[in-house]
Structure formats: structure tokens, C-alpha cells
């Protein structure tokens, strides 16, 4: 039997037998080389309560070359692209070792959610948000977990009653700021886009002049 197939089968079986880690690996179609991994968001993080799915592609030269992984579930995290789900993690690149497994790699992803590295970002905008205002970042990450990863609403707080997806919260902005510029006659979507790009959050609010924002909006 093909060594790669044997190894992948064994890894899938091992993962099924081990229930303590809460890591699941499922087939997407009939191929054992295109899989879907999933794990719960780590506790005490904004991702808690979410269920995160990862697309796994096993290359021909596995396990001597790293697996290709990206998030299927949208994640608000400095090392994960908010658009494509691409992940910036050393063991998926040069620090890969053939003794690492799908399960251990998924566990590493889980721990990446616990400890973001904004200094080596995949998504620069998210990383900027993280470094500017951790609290605001956490709110947004929590909101994303809630709407994309099926996480619970913040228990007992105001946001639970919102059923529609709030674009302002997804972008991690203050509703008051968006309203302010929308009142000047700009389209809401564009205001959100510009404010997000300029990182109009936390301490930055006082640093960025309104003129600058209007200038960007007029572009």
C-alpha cells in the first residue's frame, strides 16, 4: 500500500479513537487526501464556544512536505486572512517536520487562536486592530465567532437580540462613527470600508482627522 495513504488512514483512525482532544477529521469526498478538520475554539478566548472548520489538502510528498491548511470558517485573527482563511504558522511552512500529524497540526492551530502573533501577521488590518485596541479586537473576534462559527452570543449582554449580521460590528467599528460619516451623505458600505482601512478604532480615533476620512471617502 502507498505509504502516504497508509499514514493518512492511520492518522484519521487515531483521531477517531481519541475523543479527549475534541479534534475531528472528516472526509470531504471520497479522496482521503482532501479532508476537513474541526475543533472547538479555545476557552477564555474570543473564540470560545465557536466551532472552527479547516480545509486540509495532503500533498503528494506528504509527510515530507507540510499539509496545506486554511480556515473554512471565517476567523478574526491577526495570523489568519479574514478574506481567504489562509494561515500564517511556521509549522505549515519551514518548521514542518514529518513527525507532525494532522491532529497535532490542528492542535497547533487551536493554540494559535490562544496566542496571536500580531508582529508576524497574515492579515495586516486585523493585526493593526489587535495592536491598537485589544478590547475592541476581542469584541469583533467574539462577534465573528458568534455569527460565523456558531458561537453563543455574549451571555446576558445587549448584542444577543441582534439577529441580522451587523456589518459595523463585523468590521470592528463603532456604530456612532459610521453613523457620523453616513450622515454626511456617504454610502454606508463605503464608510465602513474606509474606516476599517484607516483603522479608525481606539486611540486612533483622536489621531485621524475627519478631513482625512472625508478625503479618503471622496477618492
Amino acid at each position: 500500500m502507498d505509504a502516504r495513504l497508509r499514514r493518512v488512514n492511520k492518522e484519521i483512525a487515531d483521531c477517531k479513537n481519541d475523543r479527549s482532544s475534541n479534534i475531528r477529521i472528516d472526509l470531504i469526498d471520497s479522496s482521503p487526501f482532501h479532508l476537513k478538520g474541526s475543533f472547538p475554539g479555545p476557552q477564555d478566548t474570543p473564540y470560545e464556544g465557536g466551532h472552527f472548520e479547516v480545509d486540509i489538502v495532503i500533498p503528494d510528498s506528504y509527510p515530507f512536505q507540510p499539509v496545506k491548511m486554511k480556515f473554512i470558517t471565517k476567523v478574526y485573527h491577526p495570523n489568519v486572512s479574514s478574506a481567504s482563511g489562509a494561515i500564517c504558522l511556521d509549522i505549515l511552512k519551514d518548521a514542518w517536520s514529518p513527525v507532525l500529524t494532522l491532529k497535532s497540526t490542528l492542535i497547533s492551530l487551536q493554540s494559535l487562536l490562544c496566542s496571536p502573533e500580531p508582529n508576524d501577521p497574515q492579515d495586516a488590518e486585523v493585526a493593526k486592530h489587535y495592536t491598537t485596541s485589544k478590547r475592541s479586537f476581542d469584541d469583533t473576534a467574539r462577534y465573528w465567532t458568534q455569527i460565523y462559527a456558531g458561537g453563543p452570543g455574549s451571555r446576558g449582554k445587549t448584542e444577543t437580540k441582534e439577529s441580522v449580521r451587523d456589518e459595523v460590528a463585523i468590521a470592528g467599528l463603532e456604530k456612532a462613527h459610521v453613523d457620523q460619516f453616513e450622515a454626511l451623505g456617504f454610502e454606508r458600505g463605503k464608510v465602513i470600508d474606509v474606516l476599517r482601512r484607516l483603522n479608525y478604532r481606539g486611540a486612533n480615533v483622536s489621531k485621524i482627522t475627519e478631513d482625512r476620512i472625508v478625503e479618503e471617502l471622496l477618492k
Binding site: S104, S115, E117
Partner: peptide
């Protein structure tokens, strides 16, 4: 058995990375 690398400080309540082959 070698533990999986953890980036940054380990979170006390996060699932401890399991040993590779037990």
C-alpha cells in the same frame, strides 16, 4: 513522544497539545 510546539505563552485552559503518538 514529543510535544507539539506552542506559539507564545501557553494558555492554561487550552487543550494541552497531545503527545504525537501517545
Amino acid at each position: 513522544g514529543r510535544t507539539t510546539r506552542q506559539r507564545g505563552k501557553p494558555n492554561s485552559r487550552s487543550p494541552t497539545p497531545a503527545l504525537m503518538h501517545g
